[in-house]
Simulated assay, not measured.
Amino acid sequence: MKTIADIAVAAGVSKSTVSRVLNHRPGVNPQARARIQAIIDESHFTANMAAKNLKARHSDMVGVIVPLMTSKSVASFIHGMSAELESQHIQMLLMNTGMSTEKASDYVKILNSKGVDGMIVLVAGYDQQLIETLGGSQSPVVVVGQDLSMHQIPSVFYDDYRCGYMAGQQLLEQGCKRLLFLGISPMDVALGRQRRRGFEDALSMAGVQCHYVSDCVLFAESGMEKTRQVLAQGYIPDGIFGVTDRIAAGAAKAMTQAGIIPGQQVAIIGVGDDELCELLTPPLASVHYDHSEVGRQAAQVLFEAITGRTTERYAHIHQGHFHWRASCQLSES
Rank of each mutant, 00 (worst) to 15 (best):
D6E: 14
D6R: 09
D6K: 04
I7M: 07
A10S: 12
G12N: 10
K15F: 05
V18D: 02
L22K: 09
Q31W: 03
R35L: 10
F45P: 06
T46L: 05
N48T: 00
A50G: 12
K55M: 04
D60F: 02
L68V: 12
T70Q: 14
V74W: 01
I78M: 14
H79T: 05
I90D: 05
Q91R: 15
L93W: 00
T97C: 14
G98C: 06
D106S: 15
K109G: 10
K114R: 12
G115N: 02
V116I: 00
G118N: 07
L134Y: 12
Q152T: 05
Q152G: 12
Y158E: 10
Q170Y: 11
G175Q: 01
G175R: 05
A190N: 13
G192C: 05
Q194S: 13
R196L: 13
R197Q: 13
F199D: 15
A202G: 14
M205C: 14
V217E: 13
L218T: 06
T227A: 11
T227C: 07
V230K: 11
I236N: 13
D238Y: 02
V243S: 08
V243T: 15
R246P: 06
A248W: 01
A248R: 02
A249C: 04
A249V: 09
T256E: 09
T256M: 03
G259Q: 02
I260Y: 08
I261E: 14
P262D: 03
G263N: 07
G263K: 04
I268Q: 08
D274V: 11
L279W: 07
L280H: 05
L284I: 11
S286Q: 03
H291T: 12
Q297W: 11
T311G: 05
T311N: 08
R313S: 14
Y314I: 04
H316D: 10
H321R: 09
H321T: 06
R325I: 00
E332C: 10
E332A: 12
E332T: 09
S333Y: 06
